[in-house]
């Protein structure tokens, strides 16, 4: 294994890693608030909203993400809905992950003691103040470990964008392997994924520690 060869293919791999990271960050940034909204929909007293949202979560969790990706990018153009590759990938990831996040947030919201809402009510805090000052901070602490799991899954799931031809980290490694007939690129790809996930795990641990100031 020559260092020179590694030096030659690393730029291409890093280039692919930026695509991986871009999908990763945008999915988290967009799917988290959407997931909170969907979880509120799941708990809504308005039946049609509840049904609609439950149906959405059922579809997203009940079918493979790979199918959803193919559906959005290769399927929808058949009925004249065309997304560019990157947007198609992001749409599929955000919709899919929001559904998982929603289930986690729903569990978090439901584990908040009813007494917290009653205490807020007799203190005349309005719904917004109750949510932002009391409920959501407690929910974040509760859901953090589960969200962390999903976040780590997301790093790896992002490699699925390969099938719609986006140049992510896995694709960069695969191209180099096929061209140079060597295992080294794939090993490096694995190392880079490990590195990304270790950083994620480290940040998550720090976050959990931050929230341990109360019980």
């Amino acid at each position: 294994m020559s260092l020179k060869y590694i030096g030659e293919i690393l730029p291409a791999l890093f280039n692919g890693a930026t695509m991986t990271l871009s999908i990763f960050f945008w999915t988290i940034i967009l799917a988290t608030p959407l997931g909170i909204l969907v979880s509120l929909g799941e708990m809504s007293k308005i039946k049609p909203i509840k049904w609609l949202v439950n149906f959405y979560v059922w579809i997203m969790r009940g079918t493979p993400l790979l199918l959803q990706l193919i559906f959005v990018f290769y399927g929808l153009p058949i009925i004249h809905i065309v997304f560019p590759r990157y947007q198609a990938a992001l749409l599929a990831f955000v919709l899919n992950y929001a559904a998982y996040f929603a289930e986690i947030f729903r569990g978090g919201f439901q584990s908040i003691d009813k007494g917290q809402f009653e205490a807020a009510k007799v203190l005349r805090l309005n719904r917004w103040q109750t949510m932002t000052q009391i409920v959501i901070p407690q929910v974040i602490k509760i859901v953090l470990p589960s969200i962390g799991n999903e976040v780590i899954n997301l790093v790896k799931d992002s490699s699925l964008v390969y099938v719609i031809g986006l140049g992510d980290l896995l694709r960069a490694g695969n191209v180099a392997m096929a061209r140079d007939v060597t295992l080294i690129p794939l090993v490096l790809v694995g190392v880079i994924y490990l590195l990304l996930i270790s950083i994620c795990a480290f940040v998550l641990k720090k976050l959990e520690k931050y929230f341990s100031y109360y019980r």
Partner: peptide, 26 residues
């Protein structure tokens, strides 16, 4: 004003914040 049986303090806020939250916001 109500003092609940199990108090229902806000666990994410310290004593001072528990007391001042509503006076400042409401």
């Amino acid at each position: 004003g109500v003092v609940f049986q199990d108090y229902n303090l806000f666990p994410n806020l310290n004593v001072l914040q528990n007391i001042t939250l509503a006076p400042t916001m409401v």
